[in-house]
């Protein structure tokens, strides 16, 4: 499936796997693809997002909120119960070493899976990326098509992007223009 991917789009797929592993997820999900898009410099998806004034830091913060382990959102929620997550983490790490609390969540998953599969949502994003590329008559799948796939995928990644100001229709128009310019240039 990846033979028509550009080098940068392949890089996104590889980095998405890294994101999933770092976040101790049991599968590569659409949100890992989104996080990976931000890690590949100078790609057209980022140009499209900038054109929509999507705040990169904001997206990263939203993605952190989806983290599998215990993140800032959990710390906030636990504080409403009078539990100081940072203090719990500190106590646990004093005894069991750094990252012990977070490592515990990841252990079972690492055991069962050396290779992390794509979940249905991520597969859908890649299929939609292919469909967008074909529809536009582009002979390759680039980061920009992955972004269009994300904007049409119906998952949390789409929710984040839309909440931050990105829109599928205008993104399609911008992608077609950018590719036309690039070809003309």
């Amino acid at each position: 499936m990846f033979e028509r991917f550009t080098d940068k789009a392949r890089r996104v797929v590889v980095l998405a796997q890294e994101e999933a592993r770092d976040r101790r997820a049991d599968a590569i999900r659409a949100e890992h693809l989104l996080a990976a898009l931000y890690r590949v410099p100078d790609n057209l998806a980022l140009t499209v997002l900038e054109a929509h004034s999507v705040d990169a830091e904001g997206v990263r913060a939203d993605l952190d909120g989806l983290r599998d382990g215990l993140g800032p959102a959990d710390a906030q929620a636990l504080a409403t119960l009078g539990i100081d997550l940072d203090e719990v983490r500190r106590q646990v790490e004093d005894t069991f070493g750094e990252g012990a609390l977070d490592r515990a969540r990841g252990r079972a998953r690492r055991w069962s899976a050396g290779h992390i599969p794509f979940d249905r949502g991520a597969k859908k994003v890649l299929e939609l990326a292919l469909r967008e590329a074909l529809r536009m008559g582009h002979g390759y799948i680039g980061c920009e098509h992955v972004l269009l796939g994300l904007l049409n995928s119906g998952g949390p990644a789409q929710t984040i992007l839309v909440a931050r100001g990105a829109r599928l229709d205008s993104a399609r128009v911008i992608v077609e223009e950018l590719v036309r310019w690039r070809r003309a240039g």
Binding site: G69, L78, L81, I83, V92
Partner: peptide, 15 residues
């Protein structure tokens, strides 16, 4: 808060 508490509980139990 309940969901986060469950996450914390699972982490501590596994550990």
């Amino acid at each position: 808060a309940v969901a986060s508490l469950r996450g914390l509980l699972e982490s501590l139990e596994e550990l």
